[in-house]
């Protein structure tokens, strides 16, 4: 589905990615993990064409994404930090994005699911962080695309909403969608992902299933297995 070939990215004098090779398989849920500042968001932004790689190529469904934008029609992307224009209302921003993409949507269903109906007429700058994240989720998931990218989807969500999000994602998995997530909540990652790609020092340090990770690190607990990866690296 998605193929990263030797992706390099440098910001000023900071080498963030130094040769990422990764493939994301169709119909599976892949989690990209790594310490803070390891370049997870940068990698996603390069995939979406928001950042440009200094070197390397990305293929989405076997076609190179360079100078191409139409592949984004089939991607639902949830950005990490929900930065919205503050002076417009929740329903206005939903209508705006719907109008801009002119693709079929399921916004009403999602608004109800995340209990946003009473907030539709409130300005985005007056929403709490958790509700902003819910708006963010509605905006990105409403197009029902076959490929979903979620950058820290859990940030700001309360336990009830978190369970709702997990249930929703499980439904999407059952529908055969490809999901790419980054998160620091290990229990969330363990519960919903099939595949782990651990990025360290700009390279893919581990790539495999959760079971493989546990057996290579000889840990039974997922969280400890990840910590073990980091520890062994620094030792």
């Amino acid at each position: 589905m998605v193929e990263f070939n030797d992706i390099h990215k440098r910001f000023d004098n900071n080498d963030v990615l130094t040769g990422i090779n990764l493939s994301i398989q169709k119909g599976r849920t892949t989690a990209i993990l790594g310490p803070n500042g390891s370049g997870k968001t940068t990698l996603i932004k390069i995939l979406l064409g928001m950042n440009h790689a200094n070197k390397g190529e990305i293929f989405v469904d076997e076609s190179n994404i360079k100078n191409n934008w139409s592949y984004r029609k089939y991607i639902d992307y949830l950005p990490q930090i929900a930065n919205f224009p503050g002076n417009i209302k929740v329903k206005e921003i939903i209508a705006m994005i719907k109008d801009l993409r002119s693709q079929p949507t399921r916004d009403e269903e999602l608004i109800e699911y995340f209990e946003l109906t009473p907030y539709l007429n409130i300005k985005l700058s007056h929403l709490s962080g958790g509700y902003k994240q819910k708006v963010n989720l509605v905006l990105s998931l409403m197009f029902n695309s076959p490929f979903i990218i979620l950058d820290e989807p859990t940030s700001g969500l309360d336990p009830v909403s978190l369970i709702k999000l997990k249930d929703l994602l499980k439904k999407e998995q059952a529908n055969g969608k490809t999901i790419l997530i980054t998160s620091h909540i290990m229990s969330f990652v363990e519960e919903i992902s099939d595949h782990i790609s651990f990025i360290l020092d700009g390279k893919v340090y581990f790539d495999g299933s959760i079971e493989e990770l546990k057996s290579t690190t000889e840990e039974t607990n997922f969280e400890y297995a990840i910590a073990n990866l980091l520890k062994n690296h620094h030792a």
């Binding site: 979406l48 934008w69 139409s70 984004r72 029609k73 950005p79 930065n83 994005i97 801009l100 993409r101």
Partner: peptide
């Protein structure tokens, strides 16, 4: 930022 992630040139 929001627009850049959408399928728009």
């Amino acid at each position: 930022q929001l627009l850049l992630a959408q399928p728009i040139k």
